[in-house]
Each structure stands twice: as structure tokens, then as C-alpha cells.
């Protein structure tokens, strides 16, 4: 196994173009597991950790541009206010060691249905910036996940950054695991309220072949909030609305039975998480007005 270690982004892209089979490695928290289990036997590893450009985040055009090399630990400590949903998701990931090494870009490239960044990115409406020697493009998060552990990147492309607009409203993230830390999700749910756009964002994890949104639930809730003037009045949400939202989120799932949980449980858990997340988010929305 050979090892390439570019120090500039241009070199990295050239290396990837020259060796499309090279496996990029960032935090290595997926790659090294694959190597250890013998599931992954690449001829070439492409180490991206020396590329300084990837390690930073910045706010450009109103959005946070999160470099591909930024660890979860930094998302939590530096971006908790700007990207609350993603920070909450990051907090649920692995252990301190994993959060120190692991990256959102690595999570995206792996594109596991259980990846914890995905529901938060889906709810927030993120965009993935990918690049190759051919140029740069932005892939809306909705188009990024194409199948079980598959994504929309081409063989010569690398992830440069993720763009997420800081929210105008509250966000929540919940994940079920069968132990209280360091656990792969059995089901996960991300929620973002976008009062500025009068929209609702959702994301579901571990309950379908890919991470996905629950569009019917989003439309239903946005419609209810609109028609009852709740965005502005910030009155209490009717119980029936909360319950219906939970049902619609659960209905968007297409889970399977596996060692981590049953399909029925996943559907049930999603409805509970969705109801609770909405309750908390709405309480935040209401208290935001009192502060204002």
C-alpha cells in the first residue's frame, strides 16, 4: 500500500485525477476501521491532513463554509452558535478521540445511512462543495446521497467544504442508540425551523437506504404554522399538529430489521423523536420572542 501526502489542494486534486482509485483519508475513523477489518485494501492512500486550506471554516456570503478537514470537536466548540443542529449531531458522535479526528466531510464521503451529520445537514439545507482538476461544483445536500453508502461525487472529485447557512430559527438533533454514548444510531432525526423562509427542514437517519428528508411532514408543519399565523403569534402548538408531524416523519422512513433494532421500533422512535424535537424547537422559538 502506498501513501500520497499532498500539501496543497491543487496537488491533492492532481493526485486524485491521476489515481482515481486512491482512497482519501482525513480523520481516518472510517478508513482505518475498513483497513483493520480487511474490508478495504486500497493500493494507494491519499492523506489530506497536510492540506492547510481544508482545516479552516469561514463565513462567506452569509453561509458558514466548513473546510473538509475541520473536526467534530471544532464544530462543537467553535460553531455551536452558528450551526447548532450540526453541533448537536457532532456531540453524539463516537467518543472524544473520534470527535477529535473525525470530519463532516468524511461522514459525507462514507454516506452511511447511519452517519450523524446527514440529518442535520438535510434539515439545514446544506450544500457540498466538491472539486476536481476539472473545476468546482456545489451539490445540494438533497442530491448528494444516491444509494447505500454511495454519493454523487465523481471518481476524480474530492470534498472541499460544506456550506451551511446559519439558521434563522431553532434546530434540534436526536439520536437513538442502545447505549448512552459511543454508539451507532438506530434512528436519528434532525429538525430546523426556518422562520425567515417560513419553512421547515427535516432529516432522518438510519431508517432508509440513504439519509433522507420527510417532505410531507415539512410541508404539513410549514402549512399549519402559516395558516394559523403561528410563525408570528408564537402561540402554543396544538397537540394534534405535533402528533401529526410525528406521524408524517415516521411515514417517510423505510427502515429494515437489523442487529441494531427492528424496523417497527425505528418507525416508532422517529415519531417520538420528531414530536419531542418539535416541542423543544417550538419552545425555543417562543422564548426567542420574549428575549427580542
Amino acid at each position: 500500500m502506498d501513501f500520497l501526502q499532498p500539501v496543497t489542494w491543487a496537488e491533492a486534486l492532481e493526485a486524485k485525477a491521476a489515481h482515481p482509485d486512491a482512497v482519501p483519508i482525513a480523520g481516518g475513523t472510517d478508513v482505518m476501521v475498513g483497513l483493520n477489518f480487511g474490508h478495504l485494501r486500497p493500493a494507494l492512500l491519499l492523506d489530506l491532513t497536510r492540506v492547510a486550506d481544508l482545516r479552516d471554516w469561514a463565513v462567506t456570503d452569509g453561509a458558514v463554509r466548513l473546510g473538509a478537514g475541520v473536526s467534530y470537536a471544532r464544530v462543537i466548540s467553535e460553531l455551536g452558535d452558528r450551526l447548532p443542529g450540526l453541533a448537536m449531531a457532532s456531540r453524539t458522535i463516537g467518543s472524544p478521540q473520534i470527535r477529535n479526528r473525525g470530519t463532516v466531510a468524511g461522514n459525507l464521503a462514507t454516506a452511511s445511512p447511519a452517519g450523524d451529520a446527514h440529518p442535520a445537514l438535510l434539515a439545514a439545507g446544506a450544500e457540498v462543495e466538491v472539486a476536481s482538476v476539472r473545476g468546482t461544483r456545489r451539490i445540494p445536500i438533497d442530491d448528494f446521497y444516491t444509494g447505500v453508502k454511495r454519493n454523487a461525487m465523481d471518481g476524480d472529485e474530492l470534498i472541499t467544504a460544506v456550506h451551511v447557512v446559519p439558521p434563522s430559527g431553532p434546530q434540534q438533533y436526536s439520536k437513538i442508540g442502545t447505549r448512552n454514548a459511543m454508539v451507532i444510531s438506530v434512528a436519528a432525526f434532525g429538525l430546523a425551523l426556518h422562520p425567515d423562509r417560513r419553512a421547515v427542514g427535516t432529516g432522518i437517519g438510519s431508517a432508509a437506504p440513504t439519509p433522507r428528508r420527510a417532505p410531507a411532514a415539512e410541508e404539513f408543519l410549514a402549512g399549519e404554522l402559516d395558516s394559523s399565523g403561528l410563525w408570528e403569534s408564537r402561540a402554543e402548538l396544538p397537540e394534534a399538529t405535533i402528533a401529526r408531524f410525528g406521524e408524517l416523519v415516521a411515514a417517510a422512513a423505510a427502515p429494515i430489521d437489523d442487529v441494531r433494532g427492528s424496523a417497527r421500533y425505528r418507525v416508532h422512535a422517529l415519531s417520538v423523536m420528531a414530536r419531542r424535537a418539535l416541542t423543544w424547537a417550538w419552545a425555543d422559538h417562543r422564548s426567542a420572542t420574549q428575549e427580542a
Binding site: 448537536m88 453524539t92 439520536k175 442508540g177 444510531s185 419531542r276
Partner: peptide, 12 residues
């Protein structure tokens, strides 16, 4: 229950 996975704030 659930820890920082944020599944309950006391509900249930």
C-alpha cells in the same frame, strides 16, 4: 436516558 444523544429532556 440516551445521554447527549438528546432524546429526552424528561419526557416519558
Amino acid at each position: 436516558p440516551g445521554g447527549v444523544s438528546n432524546t429526552t429532556h424528561g419526557e416519558g
